[in-house]
Every structure is written in C-alpha cells, then in structure tokens.
Simulated scan of single mutants.
Amino acid sequence: MIHPVIDSLDTPLNHDTPDWTTPVDPAATELVPPEGPVEVQDGTLHFQRCCWCNTPSFRRLLCPACGCTDMTSEPSTGTGVVRRVAAVGRNAGVPHPLAVIAMNEGFRLRARIIGAAPGRVHQGALVRLATYAGLRSQELAFQLCDESYAR
C-alpha cells in the first residue's frame, strides 16, 4: 500500500528556505522606533476609511463594520469631543488625564490630554490635536479647545 504523505518524504527538501542555524548580527536587525505616531504627519492626524462601506476607523487592519481590508487614509480635522476620561499615572508620578475622544469624522481614539489637570477634563469637552515632547512612542496628545477650563 502506498501512502501519499510517506511517499512525499522521499522527495528532496526545498533548499530555497533560509538557513536558521547561521548567527545573525543583532546590530543589523535592530528596530528603531518612529519619532512619533505614524498617523500624525506634518501636524495632521490621519485615519482610515473603508472603501466598501465608508466607515471611518483608527489604527485598524480590518473595517469594524464589514471586515474589509481595503482601507484608504484620509486627513482629519484634529478636533473631537471627550467621551470618557480617567486619571492615570497616580502611582508612577504626576497624574494626567487619558480620554476616549469621539472625533468629528466619526471614529474614536484614546489619547492623553495635556495642559489640563485631571479633574478639569470632563465629558463633552472639546479638544484638538496637540504636539508634546514628553509622549511615548505611538501616543497621541490633545488639548482642550476652551483654555478657561485648563487649570
């Protein structure tokens, strides 16, 4: 009796595959983190829009509505409304507000609110995209549009 799997083992292996036993220079493969979020280019926030159902999304590989992978990048106005807010970093040092922001284009994102005390940022506050040097890689920062609530 001939078995197809056993018979295929007699065929020579494909030698086009990379050799994983040779050492690799770590300096040649070191990844360098980007300077800032890839979605922010020249001070403009970019988001994805599905080509099939026109649903906006942020940092997604698939459309949240239809699951399509065909997404286009569009610039955002950079303004939105705070939907949820929490103070983070209380144990590590100075607390700062972290908020879920509903952008004017229809998608939501999580970002740090700068220039305002954690108790001063409330639901419904208008915010705009900001630049801040003390951010971690891929972290976004927004500031309140009405500065009277900042302090």
Rank of each mutant, 00 (worst) to 15 (best):
E147P: 05
A99Q: 11
V24Q: 03
S148V: 15
C63T: 04
A102T: 09
L129D: 06
A150M: 09
V127M: 04
V40C: 05
A92P: 08
D42H: 01
R49V: 15
T17Y: 14
D7P: 00
Q48W: 08
A141L: 05
V88Q: 11
L9G: 04
D42N: 08
G93L: 10
G78Q: 05
W52D: 00
A116R: 09
A125I: 01
A27Y: 03
N104I: 07
V32F: 07
L61P: 00
V94F: 08
G134V: 08
D70L: 01
G124Q: 13
C50Q: 03
G124V: 10
H96P: 00
A125W: 03
S57A: 12
Q143S: 14
L13M: 06
G78L: 06
V24S: 07
L126A: 12
V81G: 03
L45H: 02
G119W: 00
V38Y: 05
L62S: 10
T21G: 13
G89A: 03
T17P: 00
V121Q: 09
G67I: 00
L109R: 15
S57I: 02
H15A: 14
S76F: 00
F107W: 09
C50W: 01
G134H: 09
T29W: 13
V127K: 01
H96N: 02
P12W: 02
A65L: 05
L9W: 02
Y132S: 03
E139G: 06
T131Q: 14
E139S: 09
Q143H: 15
F58C: 07
D146G: 04
P56K: 08
A117H: 07
A86Y: 12
L13R: 05
A133L: 07
I2E: 15
M71H: 02
G36L: 07
C145Q: 14
R60E: 03
L13S: 03
R110K: 14
Q138S: 06
A86M: 15
I101R: 05
T72I: 11
P26C: 10
L31R: 06
A116P: 11
A99V: 15
A27T: 13
L45P: 05
N54W: 10
Y149I: 14
M103Q: 02
C53L: 07
T17H: 09
L31C: 03
R151M: 08
Q138N: 08
G36W: 08
V100I: 15
A92Y: 01
